[in-house]
C-alpha cells in the first residue's frame, strides 16, 4: 500500500477548488444558520445557480467570463428574494422544507429535457472556460477564463502541490474570493449589523419588539449567504464542467457537515471544516480501497470507497449530539437554540 502517495493526494485537497467551494458555501450557511438562524437546506440550489449562471452566461448569452460570473451571482440573488419574500415569515423547520424543495425544483429544471438547448439536460454544460476547456473536456475557444490566465505555462510548486498554470490560476482566484469573503463576513458579524442578526437567531420577536425590521435583516442575511453559495458554485464551474447531478440534496448535507465540523457560528469554522471534510473524504476514499486491495478489508474496492460516505453521516450525527459548537467552536457559542 502506497501510504505516502495516499497522504500526498490527501494533502492536495487542502488547495483543491472543491474544498474552497465548500468553504464558500459553508460560509454562506454560517451566515444563514450560524448567525441568523435560518435553516437553509437548499444551499445546493444556490450553488447550482452560481455554476449554471456562469456557464449559461457564456454559452447562451455570449458574455465574457467575468460578466457571466455575475449572471450566476445575480441568479442567486433573485432566487434568495423569490424564496425569502414569502418564506422568511415561516417557522424554522418550514423554511428548511421550503428551501430543500426549492433547490430540488432548480435541479429538476436544470435536468429536464425541456431546456436542453440552454442547460444541456443530463449531459450538463462543457467548454465554457475557453482555451484548453475544462480539465475533462478540452474545447478550443478564445476569451474564456483560461485565456485570462496570466501565469506562463509550466509546472509550479512542490509536491503535493506541484501543478500546471491552469490549476494554480484557479487556486489563486479561489483563494482571493475566499479570503475576501471571509474578511467581509468577519467584518459583518462583528458589527452592530451582526449583533442584530444574532439577536434574530435567538428570538426574532424580541428583536422585533426593539424596533428592528427583522424581515429585512433576514432577507439581507439570506441574500448574502446565497451569494456566497453561488460563488462556491462559480468556483466549481471554473474548475470543471457543470452537471445537475452534482447539485443534489446530498451536496447541501455535506456542506452542513463541513460547517458543523468547524463550528456554525464562527467565521473560520466553514474554512477549517471544509478542509477537514475534504482531506478526510480523500483520505478515507483512498485508504479503504487500498486496504481492500491489500486484502485487509473483506470487501470490494467499490464498496470500500463507499464507506467514507457512511462515515460522513455518522460524523454528522455525532457532531450534532456531542459537539454542536463544532470542533473549534466555543462551548458558549452553541448555535442550537431550544
Amino acid at each position: 500500500m502506497d501510504f505516502l502517495g495516499i497522504l500526498s493526494s490527501t494533502a492536495s485537497f487542502i488547495l483543491d477548488p472543491t474544498t474552497m467551494a465548500y468553504a464558500l458555501a459553508g460560509l454562506g450557511l454560517a451566515i444563514h444558520f450560524g448567525f441568523a438562524g435560518l435553516l437553509n437546506m437548499g444551499m445546493a440550489g444556490f450553488m447550482a445557480l452560481g455554476a449554471y449562471g456562469y456557464a449559461i452566461g457564456i454559452l447562451t448569452f455570449g458574455l465574457p467570463w467575468y460578466l457571466a460570473a455575475f449572471v450566476g451571482i445575480g441568479a442567486s440573488i433573485v432566487f434568495a428574494l423569490i424564496l425569502g419574500i414569502p418564506t422568511l415569515r415561516l417557522r424554522g423547520d418550514y423554511l428548511a422544507i421550503v428551501t430543500i424543495a426549492a433547490a430540488e425544483i432548480i435541479r429538476l429544471l436544470l435536468l429536464t429535457a425541456v431546456f436542453t438547448d440552454v442547460t444541456g439536460s443530463a449531459d450538463g454544460l462543457t467548454g465554457f472556460n475557453g482555451t484548453g476547456g475544462t480539465v475533462t473536456n478540452p474545447t478550443p475557444g478564445a476569451g474564456g477564463f483560461n485565456d485570462a490566465n496570466p501565469i506562463p505555462s509550466g509546472e509550479y510548486g512542490f509536491e503535493p502541490f506541484l501543478d500546471n498554470e491552469r490549476t494554480w490560476f484557479i487556486r489563486i482566484v479561489g483563494m482571493l474570493i475566499l479570503v475576501g469573503a471571509t474578511f467581509a463576513v468577519w467584518r459583518l458579524v462583528n458589527s452592530p449589523w451582526g449583533r442584530v442578526i444574532k439577536g434574530i437567531r435567538e428570538d426574532e420577536d424580541a428583536v422585533r419588539s426593539l424596533g428592528k425590521n427583522v424581515f429585512a435583516y433576514k432577507m439581507q442575511a439570506l441574500v448574502i449567504g446565497g451569494v456566497l453559495g453561488s460563488l462556491g458554485g462559480l468556483l466549481l464551474a471554473l474548475s470543471t464542467n457543470v452537471n445537475s447531478s452534482v447539485y443534489v440534496t446530498s451536496l447541501t448535507f455535506f456542506i452542513w457537515t463541513a460547517l458543523l465540523l468547524g463550528g456554525a457560528a464562527t467565521v473560520f469554522g466553514p474554512l477549517v471544516g471544509s478542509v477537514i471534510f475534504w482531506t478526510l473524504q480523500a483520505f478515507l476514499g483512498l485508504v479503504f480501497p487500498a486496504l481492500a486491495k491489500a486484502g485487509l478489508l473483506p470487501f470490494s474496492g467499490i464498496q470500500a470507497a463507499q464507506i467514507r460516505f457512511i462515515i460522513v453521516g455518522v460524523i454528522l450525527v455525532l457532531l450534532v449530539i456531542f459537539r454542536p459548537q463544532g470542533i473549534f467552536g466555543n462551548k458558549k457559542e452553541l448555535t442550537f437554540v431550544k
Partner: peptide, 24 residues
C-alpha cells in the same frame, strides 16, 4: 432535551449513513 433543529440534523446524518450503507 435535544433541540428540534438538532434532532432534524441528526436525522439528516442518519439518513446519509443508512443510505450509503444500502449502497455499500
Amino acid at each position: 432535551n435535544t433541540g428540534l433543529v438538532q434532532l432534524m440534523i441528526v436525522s439528516i446524518g442518519l439518513s446519509l449513513a443508512i443510505r450509503y450503507m444500502y449502497q455499500f
